[in-house]
Amino acid sequence: MPALHDVDYTLEYPYTRTTGPVIGPFLTGLRDGRILGQRCGSRVLCPPMEFDPDTAATLEPDLVEVGPGGEVVNWTWVAEPSAKHPFDRPFGFAFIKLDGAETALVHAVDTGGDAGAMSTGMRVRAQFRAERHGSIADVYFVPEADAVEQVIEPGEEPVTITEHLISLRVNEPLYPHRARFAQGLLDGKIIGQRSPVTGKVYVPGRGYDNMSRVLLDESDEVEVSDAGTVVAFTELNPVQYYGQTETEPYVRCSILFDGTDQPVIGIDIRDMTVDEMRVGMRMRCVWRDPEDRSVADIDNRYGNVPETVYARFEPTGEPDVPAEELKEHSW
């Protein structure tokens, strides 16, 4: 039996946020090659804030340019950068008190990978990236002696929205019961788990019976029929949300395989229209040829009986099961 794939996927949420009266000008300034602080009484705050950090009193927007030079007042060296850091080689993160500001900004200092170049009290200077989007990542810092003069072309419209793509990579083995289920599909079998408490058969199994709170393992697994009954269906008209790959309407149904107590949801039907579907209709799986089957899309969370293992589901021609008998399973 060949080893199954690890689960490796990236969870993404695209966030957009309004910037408001203080952060907006600050981010606009970064895009335009300037760093702005906010006046707070006799002090200047950078990063700027809409409120007095001591009293929480609202501050009227009153921005003043600070930097581009500053002093490191605290630092730490990142030997192993994360994928989200500004540099992919070792660098320093520092508290930087910009000239003209009384509070410090946290940002990255690039010393070309030399931790020995970092020290409290060192002078640094802002450098702006060639591509700027109105983000704190438009800027970074270098030791003052390494700074180069830059001519920054200001943008046009003020920055009123930020975009932040949250992107988290998940990498783990298939859980043992998921691996056995996926291997079953490659072998043209649908494997379920039978609860020793209730006798109910779940497909796919989840490694436990959540009704009786017992863990299930290989000894609880059974092969079930690849024929069953449609218990629910709908037509999907794909909305073009972020990450959508479908463009045309199609039918998605749930099938209660014979000998099981839980329908398999998300079975997609491409060769029948929604008008041809009925609750109670008997269907069977027509498997792809073994060499054409893939379970690559099965992970530990998603993926039941995917289109990559079947050619189609076809009506068996048997009489329909009365819908009344399926009430418990209409999902």
Partner: peptide, 24 residues
């Protein structure tokens, strides 16, 4: 174990001035 807690928990920080530079 499946992910990177450094990346995930950098999202607890300020979304304008800290999270975009992955402050972990």
């Amino acid at each position: 174990s499946p992910g990177s807690y450094r990346e995930g928990f950098s999202l607890q920080t300020d979304p304008y001035v800290h999270a975009p530079i992955g402050l972990d």
